[in-house]
Design a protein around this nucleic acid. Sequence first.
DNA 1: GCATCACATAAGCGTCTGCTTATTTGTTGC
DNA 2: GCAACAAATAAGCAGACGCTTATGTGATGC
Lengths: 104, 104
Amino acid sequence: MIEDDIFRALADPTRRAIFEKLAGGRMNASALRQGMAISQPAMSQHLAVLRGAGLVREARQGRFVNYDVDPEGVALIAQWLAKYRAYWPARIDALKAVLKEMDQ
Amino acid sequence: MIEDDIFRALADPTRRAIFEKLAGGRMNASALRQGMAISQPAMSQHLAVLRGAGLVREARQGRFVNYDVDPEGVALIAQWLAKYRAYWPARIDALKAVLKEMDQ
DNA sequence: GCATCACATAAGCGTCTGCTTATTTGTTGC
DNA sequence: GCAACAAATAAGCAGACGCTTATGTGATGC
């Protein structure tokens, strides 16, 4: 199950922080480490997990490797969540507003 | 972090299966076990994890305990996912259709 | 070539998970 | 009370996780 990899990857707070950082724009592994109190191998391992889950893509550029959010992975979460739409409470209005915003 | 508990809970395939089953309607622990090749204590432990994550609620009824999906937990996932709306690809249209459906 | 840098991989280790079996708690009906 | 049932908890254990240090791989620039 792909969802296994996705949720497992997101279960770790450090990996969610990395993912969130990447959501702000593409970045290489060294830049990601800035202000994160994490060793180089640990970062590399986390990125491998995120990549394996399809949440992040990599693109080698010289001796750097740039990472960015993979929309495919995000879409899979959205798809999974959509199955439980019946349980989204009133707060759903905020999400609707967001979608409306996207239309403009 | 609450999100820790949520994603950790969903990282296990058995727990996702339980959650999915509950999404079909409230059920007690014994009913949930039907056709699931899982021991009674294992089910109890999984339900405790799901409950701790706010994904599931319990309501004792006699000597049974009924469980059902907790909308609060689902809403938290939706909120988390909303942060990455910029990365939802075209497939977002399906979700939009669902929301439109909800308006009727 | 070779020193340097960016990153990945290997190996090892303490901790956490998810399962099991055994037992306990709480409820029902006689 | 007490037998039967639903569910939770306890204890133990194999396997997975996330980290570390050490080493390997690939690219840059002199």
